[in-house]
């Protein structure tokens, strides 16, 4: 639930009982108010997600079919890599278990974000057809409502597949000298990575307030980014790696911590400690995404449809 923090604080219209004429003071509500907003957001998210789950259950057969389809598609995705390795021993110098390690981490992180906030790329459509307004008259944070929009359990498919691939990787990796630090780093990486992807989704949605049909651009960063991270950085051009390290810090989702675990050299001569930065990077990304969301929503509310 890494994004929930951003969910709650995204919209600053806190419930303040005192007179609202003192605009300066009222803008700065205390930490308690903010925490209440977070809880409010999580609560609204759970309710709306629940409604969507029940809505999908209205079409049970369709749900089963799409879930099976989803699992098959994601399963085949990794199978393609396995088949590739029947012809080659190494990909960019990496063995199959090592690739599987990268793949699993990326898939779980992306899958989690996709499950939690994956429908936010529909925001542009909501702005265009005016249905966003119906969310704005509800007593719940808009970000939570938009994030829970079209919540779909079939998205668990990717997480399941990611977990399976990661499990396979952990069982077959034999050159890794596991230390406590490395063991701890794996779950931390997954959670931070999920939060980074969530931030990308939220930031992309915020951008759609301005550019209504930017959902394809957003998909390039989310789906495209997730695919990129499944392969070792050495396969890609230096400038691309630089971009996903310093500009859109997707490298912190799995590359850098995974390379540390695998004992592989970092790209771009980065120091070793960057492997432990993902939680900080994730927090920074979520904060930025929250700010972007706030700015986007404010711009919408001043410009309208």
């Amino acid at each position: 639930m890494g994004v929930s923090g951003a969910v709650g604080t995204g919209v600053r219209t806190g419930s303040r009982a005192h007179d609202d004429r003192d605009g300066w003071g009222a803008w700065d509500d205390g930490p308690l108010g903010r925490w209440e907003r977070v809880l409010d957001g999580v609560r609204a998210y759970r309710m709306i997600a629940g409604m969507w789950i029940r809505s999908t259950m209205a079409y049970r057969v369709s749900f089963v079919m799409t879930t099976i389809g989803n699992l098959t598609a994601t399963g085949l995705d990794f199978l393609a890599i396995v088949l590739m390795f029947s012809r080659i021993d190494r990909l960019g110098g990496y063995s199959l278990p090592e690739i599987a390690f990268l793949y699993g981490l990326s898939a779980i992180s992306f899958g989690t974000a996709d499950l939690v906030v994956g429908s936010m790329d529909r925001l542009g459509r909501r702005v265009r057809d005016g249905t966003l307004d119906t969310l704005l008259v509800r007593p719940a944070p808009v970000l939570a409502q938009v994030a829970a929009d079209r919540f779909a359990l079939r998205r668990l498919g990717r997480i399941t597949q990611g977990l399976a691939v990661l499990g396979y990787a952990l069982l077959t990796l034999d050159d890794v000298h596991w230390t406590i630090l490395k063991v701890l780093l794996v779950p931390v990486t997954v959670i931070s990575g999920g939060a980074i992807f969530c931030a990308v989704f939220v930031g992309g949605a915020a951008f759609q307030f301005v550019a209504r049909d930017a959902s394809e651009v957003q998909n390039a960063f989310t789906y495209g980014g997730a695919t990129l991270l499944q392969y070792p950085p050495g396969l890609f051009a230096r400038d691309l790696v630089r971009g996903v390290t310093f500009v859109l810090p997707l490298a912190f989702v799995n590359w850098l911590p995974a390379l540390y675990v695998l004992g592989r050299p970092y790209p771009l001569d980065l120091p070793e400690w960057v492997a432990f930065l993902p939680p900080l990077v994730a927090a920074g990304c979520c904060a930025l995404a929250g700010l972007a969301w706030r700015a986007g929503l404010r711009s919408y509310r001043s410009t309208g449809s």
Partner: peptide, 29 residues
Amino acid sequence: GIDPSRERTRLARRIGVVFGQRTTLWWDL
């Protein structure tokens, strides 16, 4: 007594809105 744009959620509890052409009901439920 509430400034709607600044205290949107607080106001939301006290107002009802019906958009004639956009239903707020859950389509499939």
